[in-house]
């Protein structure tokens, strides 16, 4: 299968300022790829290069088997810009209709269905839309022609939690249909639930590409167990993977590296009345990449 996105040594300088350095990346069909990094790391630069908004200083990128300089290739992509600007007296519906016509026609019913799902009002002049409502219009125009590749730059910015959930459902549907999504974010939590892989970019360089399932496997998990009677601390001490153990009367609190199996089996000997398992904090792992990198940088500087 040919990759949907194939970047090789992709580099972009704005004058002397580095935007992106030597990006090599493949994204496969049907994959949801989370592209992560702090603001100014090079996410938007990468995305603009993929869409031929800007041109690389060095390197190549192929999108959907062609070059995005070809209008026909761009027709198969849906794009949500990171800084979406919508203005003027024009109503959102008219603007979407115009975009749909340029894209070769989009059924009105599909636009309406998307608007309903995202709870977007299309009858308002665009300059009167709030940031969140503009973002909804941006999402509608990216999804409405059912593109093979969706490129979404910070898609959840400004959306309220309910709409965010609906958006994530839409992304999952796209993946189920075998289409591909590249979405950027500066917070892992926003993309970890839908992404198959995440790439981490920092200061213009892609520093890690990780499978989310594998990342979760490695993740640190906080667990809280409550029993009907006080339990002896030594039964839980020294279990494989258990760290930061605190036993207070009938409650056991700890963090788990990897699988919680040993802890569960130890707990099973008592009567468990309540169990709390916090979501694995991928953010923490994510941050260790950064701090590793920083340490690395420090070493270089001191050398």
């Amino acid at each position: 299968m040919t990759a949907v996105v194939q970047a090789e040594g992709l580099t972009k300088y704005y004058g002397k300022r580095r935007g992106l350095e030597d990006l090599t990346l493949e994204i496969q069909p049907g994959e949801v790829f989370g592209y992560l990094g702090p603001n100014g790391a090079g996410k938007t630069t990468t995305i603009r290069l993929l869409l031929d908004v800007i041109r690389p200083t060095r390197g190549h990128v192929r999108v959907l088997g062609g070059g995005s300089r070809e209008a026909a290739v761009r027709g198969r992509i849906g794009y949500l810009p990171g800084e979406l600007a919508l203005e003027g007296r024009e109503r959102a519906r008219d603007y979407l209709e115009f975009l749909g016509r340029v894209r070769g026609g989009v059924p009105r019913a599909r636009v309406d269905a998307l608007a309903e799902r995202l709870n977007a009002d299309l009858s308002v002049p665009m300059r009167k839309l709030s940031k969140g409502n503009k973002q909804k219009i941006g999402l509608i125009q990216a999804f409405m022609h059912e593109p093979e590749l969706l490129i979404l730059d910070e898609p959840t910015g400004g959306l309220d939690p309910l709409v965010q959930q609906e958006f994530l459902t839409m992304v999952r549907e796209v993946r189920t249909a075998g289409r591909t999504v590249l979405m950027s974010s500066h917070v892992l939590a926003e993309v970890e639930h839908v992404s198959d892989r995440v790439g981490i970019v920092r200061e213009g360089r892609l520093i890690a590409v990780e499978n989310v399932a594998a990342l979760r496997e490695k993740a640190v998990r906080r667990i809280e167990l409550h029993f009907d009677a006080p339990v002896p601390a030594e039964e839980f001490a020294g279990l494989p993977g258990v760290r930061d153990l605190r036993v207070t009367g009938a409650a056991v609190r700890c963090t788990i590296d990897g699988r919680p199996d040993a802890l569960i089996k130890a707990a099973a000997r008592h009567t468990v009345v309540h169990l709390v398992s916090a979501e694995p904090d991928l953010e923490e792992i994510f941050l260790t990449y950064y701090s590793d990198e920083e340490r690395h940088d420090d070493r270089q500087e001191s050398a």
Partner: peptide, 14 residues
């Protein structure tokens, strides 16, 4: 300058 052109140049128009 307003930022609206970015979306337009990603449309399938040469």
């Amino acid at each position: 300058e307003a930022g609206t052109l970015e979306l337009i140049v990603t449309l399938p128009i040469d």
